[in-house]
């Protein structure tokens, strides 16, 4: 390895080349400028803007703010029972979506990578992610038709004797709609990690006495775990923050946090209140996903 790392070789053998080395070491940082400015302009500044607005209250027609900073919005958030309800709904829905989507996507990705013959893999994957090609909103509308009382899902449930179930305009429909999206997201992530598993590892496991399920438990699952965790984190982020699916499929009654946030804009035109919801959403997403993402790196340390 040392032979392809001229820097470390130079360091140990030629200490007199220090100045030159420093310049070489310094250079890569310039390359970070585009990435850093991208993050700054598209993420940091808006977040700081939202954060600062969440400590304001409106004045007049809504686009002016009263002078000074206040915790009023946060106090308001944490003292209303309805906010807890909206928050809890978002949380429960997101967790269910992540659970269902993980289970389904895992089975799908495993089938594509390890069971479908190689030459059909690309095609199968393409079919599974094809719905990505249409807009999120259009798909939500399509699910409206599918889940309606007169729609095919209902007809099928009646056929198999489950009886008439009200799905559309309840959060069951929200969970279904988001799960479909999560399955695609997770399948893509899982496919790419599973595809990268060296087939010889499976052969080696079998050769060393592992049955099929043992190979899965000892090799395939631990090696695909990063994809599962990252996919799950992304799915959580999207489920927790999505407004379209709960609005179009969930019925707008018993709203979730994102709907409360949009409501703060459309009903009250209250930017500070909406910012407060956004900050609470952001913090929640960070608190939930950071440990997941950290966990995804465990076991693959390259140090």
């Amino acid at each position: 390895m040392a032979s392809i790392l001229p820097l470390s070789a130079g360091k140990s053998n030629k200490p007199q080349a220090g100045g030159r080395e420093r310049r070489i070491m310094g250079n890569p940082w310039y390359g970070l400028i585009p990435a850093v400015s991208y993050l700054l302009f598209f993420y940091l500044i808006p977040v700081v803007y939202l954060l600062s607005r969440s400590f304001k209250i409106t004045q007049g027609s809504g686009i002016q703010f009263a002078p000074g900073l206040t915790l009023a919005n946060y106090i308001e958030f944490f003292t209303a029972r309805t906010n807890y309800l909206a928050y809890a709904r978002s949380m429960v829905i997101s967790i269910l979506v992540v659970l269902f989507a993980s289970l389904i996507a895992y089975a799908v990705a495993y089938t594509i990578v390890f069971i479908v013959p190689k030459r059909y893999q690309q095609m199968t994957l393409l079919l599974i992610i094809a719905p990505f090609w249409t807009s999120f909103v259009i798909r939500a509308f399509a699910w409206q038709l599918l889940l309606a009382e007169a729609g095919p899902v209902s007809a099928f449930l009646k056929q198999v004797g489950v009886g008439s179930l009200k799905i559309l305009n309840t959060h069951v429909a929200t969970v279904i709609g988001l799960t479909v999206f999560g399955v695609m997201m997770l399948t893509l992530n899982l496919y790419s990690v599973m595809e990268n598993i060296n087939p010889n590892l499976l052969a080696a496991a079998a050769d060393l006495g592992a049955r099929r399920w043992q190979t899965f438990k000892e090799v395939v699952f631990p090696l695909s775990r990063p994809g599962l965790l990252i996919g799950a984190a992304l799915t959580f982020i999207i489920s927790f923050g999505d407004y379209v699916v709960p609005s179009l499929l969930g019925g707008g009654v018993r709203i979730v946090l994102s709907q409360a946030m949009v409501g703060a804009m459309t009903t009250s035109f209250n930017i500070p209140r909406a910012s407060t919801y956004a900050m609470i959403m952001l913090v929640t997403i960070l608190v939930v996903t950071m440990p997941i993402l950290r966990l995804s790196r465990v076991g693959l340390n390259t140090e």
């Binding site: 309805t82 906010n83 707008g252 018993r254 709203i255 709907q259 409501g263 009903t267």
Partner: peptide, 15 residues
């Protein structure tokens, strides 16, 4: 007091 009205509506939706 449109803010009061809006708040009632938001609560109504979240109930």
């Amino acid at each position: 007091n449109i803010d009061e009205w809006a708040k009632i509506w938001d609560e109504f939706k979240a109930m």
